[in-house]
Write a protein that binds this DNA or RNA. Structure first.
Lengths: 332, 332
DNA sequence: CTGTTAGCGCGTTCAC
DNA sequence: GTGAACGCGCTAACAG
């Protein structure tokens, strides 16, 4: 590769100074129409492209935001990423994608990288970090948004799914349909959203004045396999259960399989409810009853919070997205 | 936010010159153990983090690669992105994620942005650009890899799925099972992989010495909805078809729905075969026969090609990934 | 072993 | 309307 064209190449070729080139590029100051057109001609002819690296060094803005997710292969986050990228692109921002692979050390490492790259902001999803660690982390960026995680009292921009409401809706639906012994595959033990859904689960039982047992709860990996093995384990320990609430749709699909393994038929003997309403949910057999959440919208909102900060808005935004129960055959 | 700590802050605090700090940071040159430890102490105490943007300006390397995909919400690309990111991370690179949304203008726009950001390389997936345009585009980066797309003769790094083989395997399997009138939902008209699979489809018929009709082909959007409506349209136009080969698994799931709409039962009256073997494929009813391709591996290989270029390897790599037919109930 | 001098490519003062 | 200086934060040559 030959040396890249620089601003001075353009300036020399057009017979003007660096300043004039800079001015036409940024539409700043007054430049006579004649020289402006001449400069623009040279820029096109030479195929000159200003270096964002050099520009960032002086403007102290990179036009880049970091997106940190546990796993981009999980449909929840890949769709969220789409929303982030779409909104970012519309405002001229780029997105650095980082997977933590559910590993806190790696989460810290990618956050350091993003700091080194001087991103203008960070969108941190489902962080597995402790509160102090997280607080310290977010304070190192010009702006940051937490998704699926709360911290302090309105100190930091946040986009949340109202998981407590979701857990309550799902549980209430099951109770309404006459199921009273409802198991709950709660996902990763440290999961914020999992604990929120558990609150909703407990609240629904309390609302209905029905007793339940903590033995009906079981943590699991947030995957199909995690759901399958956990469902088997829970159903064997508690054969009297008549429904399974699941951390997310992947776990619910696994639960479906676990039920099949044990010759438990869904929904006649066992109702299964998921969370998220990923594409899969409507397509498995039986189709999943689940809490619908538009993760594309979650991504858009998160990016929008960053943008409003970039625009000078001083107060943190707090967006709460309400899930809606979608009733399908797995829990009619 | 207060001013960031810079190298001169560290130098002043440690009582040394900028160069010495730089040297301990990069483990270059010789520094006495005493001063090295003193400097490292100051760095930790101040929480200093070198600016990658300043460093990039002088080293002319950003430690960042661009990943351009049609749609990160498509499982194929989100898993590929995971592979790219994993391999990149292991070698200290970051990934800028860009969606083209199947729009050539947007594809050109994101490629310009990546050029402006001075990425060290680009991974361009399923490009919809014309050959000349594409040639011009890739030549603007220090390194680039094409995925799911060929260009020239071994001029550029390439990772391909052997889609012709896949099309042949799938079609031959259907012919072997006694199905002779096989429709093909070919996906987007400009799709490279679609046209390759069509070659395999034609080749399998030729191998078997069986006649087929171009009326059995129909283009469609690469989505569930696209597959559903296309399947209905094709089956109504050609009621004699006994099998449907589909551009990808999403289209195949749509085809399953289209068959259900028309009261055509799968697999007894109609066999359906997909491509890619996304998670969904094994979970729908009936489970999909499909061509398995590890898109995670595709992503890893693409990034590996970039890395070998960064390491000075002059010859382009060409990786061909062979799909494997996974036989399930939709086409036994 | 350590410091000094130059830039990397661009925007931001000021003058003219 | 235009240009000459300077600096953003850091590394690559040279000195010493």
């Amino acid at each position: 590769m030959s040396r890249r064209i620089t601003m001075s190449d353009v300036a020399r070729e057009a017979g003007v100074s660096l300043m004039t080139v800079s001015r036409v590029l940024n539409n700043k100051g007054d430049v006579s129409t004649a020289t402006r057109q001449r400069v623009q001609g040279v820029i096109l002819r030479l195929g000159y492209r200003p270096s964002e690296v050099a520009r960032s060094l002086v403007t102290r803005r990179t036009g880049t935001v970091g997106l940190v997710v546990p796993d981009n292969a999980n449909p929840f986050f890949s769709e969220l990423a789409r929303g982030v990228e779409h909104t970012a692109y519309a405002s001229g921002y780029s997105v650095l994608l980082c997977n933590t692979e559910e590993n806190p050390e790696r989460e810290n490492a990618v956050l350091l990288t993003l700091e080194d790259k001087r991103v203008d902001g960070v969108i941190l999803c489902s962080s597995r970090l402790g509160s102090e660690e997280l607080q310290a982390a977010v304070s190192r960026y010009p702006a940051s948004v937490l998704v699926n995680r709360e911290l302090g009292a309105g100190q930091v921009d946040t986009v949340l799914v109202d998981d407590e409401l979701g857990g309550r809706l799902a549980t209430a639906h099951l109770l309404d349909s006459g199921r009273r012994r409802i198991g709950f595959l709660t996902g990763p033990e440290v999961s914020w959203s999992g604990s929120q859904r558990l609150k909703g689960y407990n609240a629904a039982f309390a609302d209905a004045g029905i007793a339940h047992s903590s033995g009906w709860l079981l943590a699991c990996a947030p995957t199909v396999e995690g759901g399958r093995s956990a469902a088997r384990q829970l159903l064997q320990a508690h054969p009297g259960l008549t429904a399974l609430l699941c951390y997310n749709d992947l776990v619910a699909v696994g639960a479906l399989q676990g039920c099949a393994d044990l010759r438990v038929s869904v929904p006649s003997s066992m109702a299964v409810v998921g969370f998220d309403d990923i594409a899969l949910a409507a397509l498995v057999t039986p189709p999943l009853t689940t809490c619908h959440v538009s993760r594309y919208d979650v991504g858009c909102e998160a990016m929008r919070s960053l943008l409003s900060r970039f625009d000078g808005q001083p107060e943190p935004r707090r967006v709460v997205i309400r899930p809606e129960l979608v009733v399908r055959a797995s829990a009619p």
